[in-house]
């Protein structure tokens, strides 16, 4: 399984990363090297093995449906790159 430049560009699009041609070339090489290394997993038969998503087997961790104070608007937008009247302002969407 070898990753092509086109696939790397597609992945970059999914990840919303603007890559230069040089970066695409570099990541194509590097990701292929890492994925080649990962190929060794295929040697293992895991058909009867359950995946581990959590190492500690917890379940049903809940909070009660209780309203707590929100944070004041000024603090919420304090880190905004661009703020307008308590909103986060972003460039046009389409």
């Amino acid at each position: 399984m070898s990753l092509t430049k086109a696939e790397v560009e597609h992945v970059a699009m999914l990840a919303r990363l603007a890559l230069t041609d040089d970066e695409v070339a570099m990541y194509t090489t590097q990701l292929n090297a890492i994925l080649d290394y990962a190929q060794r997993l295929e040697a293992l038969d895991t058909s009867a093995v359950a995946p581990t998503a959590h190492v500690f087997p917890l379940h049903n961790v809940f909070r009660d449906d209780v309203v707590r104070p929100s944070m004041e608007q000024a603090k919420i937008v304090a880190n905004a790159p661009e703020e307008e009247d308590g909103f986060f302002r972003v460039p046009r969407i389409v």
Binding site: M1, L3, E7, V8, V11, A12, L14, A15, L17, L19, E23, Y27, Q30, L31, I34, L35, A38, L41, E42, L44, T46, V49, A50, P51, T52, A53
Partner: peptide, 30 residues
């Protein structure tokens, strides 16, 4: 960071999830 985002995005992407992420989670069990 970009390298790992690229790698991780690829490992989760359609058609590769089972071969990479799910497989890795199973070997994690081992």
């Amino acid at each position: 960071v970009k390298r790992r985002i690229m790698l991780g995005t690829y490992a989760l992407s359609s058609g590769y999830y089972d071969a990479y992420y799910l497989k890795a989670q199973k070997v994690r069990t081992l």
